[in-house]
Lab assay of single mutants.
Amino acid sequence: TFELKGKVGKVVKIAEDHYLVEVEGDKWIAYSDEKLSLGDRVMVVDVDGLKLKVKRIP
């Protein structure tokens, strides 16, 4: 999972307290300090167990 840091993915689902992002064909639970929208491109900035911390990228 640490090899996911720096990888780019996209938001595929928005849940009440987390996001579902697809990175390299796999779906992961993710969270972010900013509000994300469906389809946003994101970069993995940290890995916390099986959850990814992501940030939006242009």
Rank of each mutant, 00 (worst) to 15 (best):
V44A: 02
E34G: 10
V42S: 03
V42A: 13
V8T: 08
E16A: 10
W28Y: 12
K35C: 06
R41G: 13
H18I: 14
L50P: 04
V23N: 01
D26Y: 15
R56N: 06
K35F: 09
G6Q: 01
Y19G: 10
L50A: 06
V8H: 10
D33H: 14
K51Q: 07
D40A: 11
E3K: 01
K55W: 11
A15W: 11
P58R: 04
V11E: 00
V8R: 03
G6S: 01
L20Q: 08
V11A: 06
K27E: 05
K5P: 06
H18E: 08
G49E: 06
G25P: 04
L4W: 02
V54P: 00
V23F: 02
K51V: 10
K53L: 13
L4C: 03
Y19E: 05
D26Q: 15
A30W: 00
K13P: 02
D26L: 14
D17L: 12
K27D: 10
K10P: 14
T1A: 15
L4F: 01
G25K: 07
D48A: 08
E16N: 11
Y19S: 11
V12W: 14
K10C: 12
H18S: 13
E34W: 12
I14P: 12
D40L: 11
S32C: 04
L20N: 10
V21C: 05
E34T: 11
A30P: 00
G39L: 11
L38N: 08
L36D: 00
K5I: 14
K53V: 03
G25Q: 13
K53T: 10
I29W: 09
L50W: 15
V44H: 01
V45Q: 07
M43Y: 04
T1W: 15
K27R: 10
E16W: 10
K13D: 06
L52M: 03
G6V: 00
K51T: 11
K51I: 08
V47F: 14
S32W: 06
D33Y: 13
F2M: 15
K5T: 13
V42R: 00
V23C: 04
A30Y: 00
G25S: 10
E22A: 08
K7N: 03
P58K: 05
V47S: 02
G6A: 01
K5N: 12
R56Q: 05
G6T: 01
V45C: 07
L36Q: 09
E34Q: 13
G49W: 11
I29H: 12
